[in-house]
Simulated assay, not measured.
Amino acid sequence: MTFEDPGQALEWCDTEQVKLIALIRHAAGTGHDDIAWKLAGALGSYFLVRKHLAEWLATGRISLAAVRRTGDRGGEAWVLASRGTCYCDFRQALIITPVSDKRGKAWSLHALGRPNEARQAWSDALAIFKDLGVPRAAQVQARLTALG
């Protein structure tokens, strides 16, 4: 498959992202670890450009487990470097997130492994969304439930 320009490639990735992530999960779950970690790696630049940090982090977890099962130490180093870039983006997101963006702050804290702070930020975001009658309140409630 070839694209006329980077914009066309990004549009294709935008359209196919959900399927590609499902394919990564499926490959890892069916013993096709090389495909899983390499496909996840190929999407890393897309996730970086589009700032799909949650998806990047999720596929990074899958790809790290997959590459470790293969024993490919070079691949493992590559996956770890990609995850490091993602975590740096989350830290930067946390730094630049406006005080009023409780949801953004909550997601960044959660991704950085600070669930107690994330839980409070998600609770604050939920209260604001409910007050405003924003439909995203259900999504925020789901995140809180996932945090436990």
Rank of each mutant, 00 (worst) to 15 (best):
N116D: 10
I128A: 08
R114T: 05
V67W: 00
L132I: 12
Y46F: 11
R103H: 12
T70V: 03
G133W: 01
P115Q: 07
Y46A: 07
E117S: 06
H110A: 15
A93D: 08
R83H: 07
Y87T: 11
L64E: 15
L53F: 05
R83T: 10
L126G: 11
L57R: 15
L126D: 03
T97I: 02
A58H: 08
Y46R: 11
D124G: 07
L64A: 13
I95H: 08
K51P: 00
C88E: 15
R103V: 11
L48S: 14
K130Q: 14
Q92I: 05
L94N: 06
S108M: 05
D72E: 07
S100M: 06
A54W: 05
A58C: 02
H52Y: 15
L43G: 09
A42S: 10
Y87E: 13
L64V: 11
S82N: 13
T70C: 02
R103N: 09
R136D: 12
L126C: 12
R136W: 05
C86T: 11
K130A: 08
V99L: 05
V67P: 00
A77T: 13
R119N: 04
L48C: 14
T85G: 11
S63G: 11
L132K: 05
A40H: 06
R68P: 00
A81E: 13
S108N: 12
